[in-house]
Design a protein around this nucleic acid. Sequence first.
DNA 1: GCAAGGACGTA
DNA 2: GTACGTCCTTGCA
Length: 972
Amino acid sequence: MHLLLVDGSTYIFRAYHALPPLTRKSDGLPVGCVSGFCNMLFKLTEDLKGEDEPTHMAVIFDHSAKSFRNELYGEYKAHRPPAPEDLAPQFPLTRDATRAFSIPPIELEGWEADDIIATYACAARRAGGKVTIVSSDKDLMQLIEPDGSIRMLDTIPRPGQPPLRWIGPEEVFAKFGVTPDKVIEVQALCGDSVDNVPGVPGIGVKTAAELINTYGDLETLLSRAEEIKQPARRQKLIDNADLARISKQLVTLSQDVPLPLELDALARQPIDPGTLIPFLKAMEFTTITKRLAALLDADPDAWEADPALAAKPVSAVGFDNAARAEARAARHAADGKADAPAVLHAHRTHEAIRAIPFDLDAYTTITDPETLAAWIAGARQQGHVAIDTETTGLDNQAADLVGISLALAPGQAAYIPLGHVSGEGDIFGGGHAEGQMEMKDAIALLAPLLADPSILKIFHNFKYDHGVLCRFGLPVEGFDDTILLSYALDGPQFNTMAELARHWLGHEGIPIKDLLGSGKSQKTFAQVPIPDAARYGAEDADITLRLWHILKARLVPENATAVYETLERKLAPVLARMEARGISVDRQILARLSGDFAQRAAAFEAEAHELAGEKFNLGSPKQLGDILFGKLGLPGGTRTKSGQWATGAGVLEDLAARENVPLAKVIVDWRGLTKLKGTYTDALPGYINPRTGRVHTTYSQHSVLTGRLSSNDPNLQNIPIRTEDGRKIRTAFVAAPGNELVSADYSQIELRILAHIADIQALKDAFEEGLDIHAMTASEMFKVPIEGMPSEIRRRAKAINFGIIYGISAFGLANQLGIPRGEAGDYIKTYFERFPGIRDYMEEMRRRVKSEGFVTTLFGRKILFPNANSKNPAERAFVERASINAPIQGTAADLIRRAMIRMEPGLKAAKIEADMLLQVHDELIFEIPEGTADKAIPVITDIMQTAAEPAIRFSIPIQVDAHAATNWDEAH
DNA sequence: GCAAGGACGTA
DNA sequence: GTACGTCCTTGCA
């Protein structure tokens, strides 16, 4: 038996570094290393013919970075840089290549390739066989046997040397100065800087060999160290005895690896053209394919490229087919099955990134301009860098900048402390902490990098960081955002960096709570000690960079590029500017309203206590329920999920009307007033930013399933309008002096989109003619003329129209209209008969969500429903309704996003001065100079009305209504 | 001090 | 019947 063991890592790194980068033509998958690997493997089998021809063969790979040596010594291989990003995805392909040559690839979790090689080599020798190890790794030299039963072969080409160089005891002696069996003793002393094996400081190979040749082995040497004449050398050995012992353990190869394949299983197999050629074709290695086919005497055209690995042509198919192809790709990605090559690439990128361990102690703290300049140069050379800011708060319009982190590669990250304070940070805030860079120096160095659009800056939640950075003179051009990538791909299911890190990296980041504490004693980030801050901050940048690699690779195979690039990435800076502008709110108006509401609420409260015959907390639904349905014994009480009495507005209004309970009405009125007071008139003034004097909401671009925005702190998307008291709050939202507000809203946008998507001719005609759409619906359904229609009839039709948009059910409609279930069911039936397209649309969405797990908007946004096939019937019904609503709500959301993206350049081109301040789903609020409304409104409405074009040509008119006034109530 | 539930403001 | 965010009470730690 002659066993040939190929050290796969040597081959891979040689192929990678010696060859120019090569990518597969059809899809850009990096394959240069695979190509070199194939060539070397083939050349090896050609070179070893005749007496050196092996009977058994395997290629051994390193599985991952971790082995028992990391347990032994934490620093082992700690300084290894992570694999380059275009190399990592090729690792799995080299295994495929090995298999294609009918050679078993072997790797084992927790073991280095060298250990596996040692175990196989010794097993083969024990069985009386001969072993050749193909490698140039000196760590394997300890295995060489003087009898020639185990030899090494270095095939790496070196100038002026023969192509094949056998390594036996002589060559080992030339390198280590000892026989192979003493190599580990020498390595224990001299260590290895590449693998970070410490050895004894100050002792090199020469000295080590001399010592070992004198004393025989490490233990003998250490026990007789006192005898050494040179005082420095003697002391070093005594001081570092333990380090030497650990080093010996680190360099000693294990022979106890549980071998995945028996020796017999490594017996050589003839190369099978039916396996090899499909692989080579899939890689698109035309030259190698031809050459090997000729050598194997096979016809290369007899086989197709392996479909599991091959690039798949992008088909120019219609919307439906494209959607199905997407679904397939997404499913394959989820299954881990390789289908499209880009899916494969994404999958492998994920695996490779995930395999790189985190080392929080390896991060750098940058405190001087030279170091920062070096990192910036690194970013420029690479073309991308992940950036994260640390600040004193969650409101980017108020928070101060504390530090900035950078990450250039997985594991390679740094933190720049800028605004930390010293001491315990008492009420006086403490002083500026030691060991930080001057803020102005850091800004001067960073500004050109951030402003350079040719260098990609990668953020997690760009909008936040950008808001802070801008205020410190660091505007950003050219960015990616991992939260937006995630949102474009997976919707809002992973909302935070922690969730993304957990899911994609299997990594638990440092919880911010660990640094800041919580509750009353919570610190700000400025008070966090710099070393802790550096670990946390640099880790965030590191995580961001890793997530970017993984998520960005998924964009193409999962067809999310257009949504990410055109809807998400372009919108973020627009929203950032809207947030920075804020809106002016009149404190006095709110204060007056608060007083008024408080007085009237107090009167209601007293009346309620009177009517109930006792004092109770009107704000407690629990207490109220007990009084209404317990003490007063009123009939018709229903219970909530948790068994409490339900006391919602519907229940109370019913009670007031049917049972004539004045208490119920009083509670409704009291709740209305306290809601307005608590949520709006009392709370809003607290949001006025002292620096700007305005209220700055924060929009979330990545929280809503359908693609809408949400607004928080404060939520300016639910400012009251429906009641008279509520509307008064809107009068407090005012234009700055000398300005006006313009409110422009899409009219009936969701019904119009429904008419278009479901292709309802009657609805489309009505919109075309500008009819009252609810009256038209009523007249169609109930056969009543529009002229003189009773308002109740129109109200019912309106409820049905909204019901349709919401994924109607008889139960829900009955609830809404206060009619029996059967009657509501009849309405729906009638509606479907009058507008048959609706039923088809609803059926189609139900079918799609069940088979694909998602539905799409007209602009290609995927809306995922992971539990579409839930075992729970209620949940399934819910998904059905949501999947009917989602394309409608989502298309409207995409439409206004497009309008917002085009608004600023559109206004500028028309030379209109108007600042977009707020978005409320189908409405945009602008601030314009007084008296310019006549010019501004036509431009604004035009941009909104044509926002779908040219992507979509709606078959209904899109109508926008706009008004100007000095406050929001009157402008609406 | 925190999470859950109920209620209610918007499109 | 869809999609959100916030306030308040309650119950548990």
